[in-house]
Amino acid sequence: MTTARSVSPDTGEKGRPVKVAINGRFLLAAYGGVLRCATEITERLARMRDDIVLLVPPGAVDRVPEGVPFEVVGRSSGPIWEQIELPLWLRRHGTPLLVNPANIAPFAYRRQISIQHDIAPALRPQDFTFLFRVQWHLSVRWGMLRRGQSLVTSSRASREEIAAQFGVDPQRIEVVHLGADTLPLPGGEPAAAEERAVFVTFGRHGAAKNARAAIDALAELPADAPIDVEFVGKLDPELAPYAAARGIAPERIRWRGMVSDEELADAFYRATAFVWPSLHEGFGLPPLEAQRLGAPVLASDIPINREILGDSARYFPATDAAALASLFVEVSDDPGLRAELSRRSRVNAEGFTWQRAADRWNALIDARLG
Results as ranks from 00 to 15, higher is better:
residue 335 P to T: 05
residue 277 P to W: 03
residue 72 V to W: 01
residue 50 D to A: 12
residue 57 P to N: 05
residue 193 A to D: 11
residue 129 T to L: 15
residue 245 A to W: 05
residue 141 R to Q: 13
residue 241 P to V: 06
residue 147 R to A: 15
residue 347 V to E: 13
residue 165 Q to R: 12
residue 30 A to L: 12
residue 107 F to Y: 13
residue 66 E to V: 15
residue 270 R to E: 10
residue 251 E to T: 02
residue 51 D to K: 06
residue 205 H to T: 00
residue 369 L to E: 13
residue 38 A to F: 05
residue 62 D to A: 14
residue 197 A to M: 02
residue 30 A to K: 13
residue 90 L to H: 01
residue 135 Q to K: 06
residue 245 A to C: 10
residue 313 A to N: 02
residue 82 E to I: 00
residue 243 A to E: 01
residue 317 P to H: 05
residue 136 W to Q: 05
residue 19 K to L: 14
residue 7 V to C: 07
residue 234 K to V: 01
residue 259 V to L: 14
residue 182 T to N: 14
residue 343 R to A: 14
residue 26 F to M: 11
residue 120 A to F: 11
residue 54 L to C: 08
residue 157 A to Y: 06
residue 364 L to Q: 03
residue 172 R to T: 00
residue 171 Q to H: 04
residue 295 A to Y: 04
residue 93 H to Q: 08
residue 294 G to W: 02
residue 215 I to E: 01
residue 180 A to V: 09
residue 57 P to S: 14
residue 330 E to R: 03
residue 274 F to G: 08
residue 363 A to T: 14
residue 90 L to V: 02
residue 239 L to Q: 09
residue 350 E to N: 03
residue 341 L to R: 10
residue 127 D to H: 12
residue 66 E to A: 15
residue 288 L to P: 00
residue 240 A to V: 00
residue 176 V to C: 01
residue 3 T to I: 12
residue 339 A to P: 06
residue 76 S to E: 13
residue 56 V to Q: 04
residue 175 V to T: 07
residue 333 D to Q: 14
residue 167 G to Y: 10
residue 315 Y to M: 02
residue 193 A to K: 15
residue 73 V to I: 07
residue 346 R to E: 11
residue 151 L to P: 00
residue 186 P to W: 10
residue 255 W to K: 06
residue 161 E to C: 10
residue 312 S to V: 03
residue 188 G to Y: 01
residue 278 S to D: 15
residue 36 R to D: 05
residue 57 P to H: 08
residue 65 P to G: 15
residue 108 A to I: 03
residue 305 N to H: 15
residue 162 I to M: 11
residue 350 E to Q: 09
residue 268 F to L: 11
residue 134 V to Q: 04
residue 121 P to R: 06
residue 255 W to D: 02
residue 189 E to Y: 01
residue 171 Q to S: 11
residue 231 F to H: 02
residue 12 G to V: 14
residue 190 P to M: 09
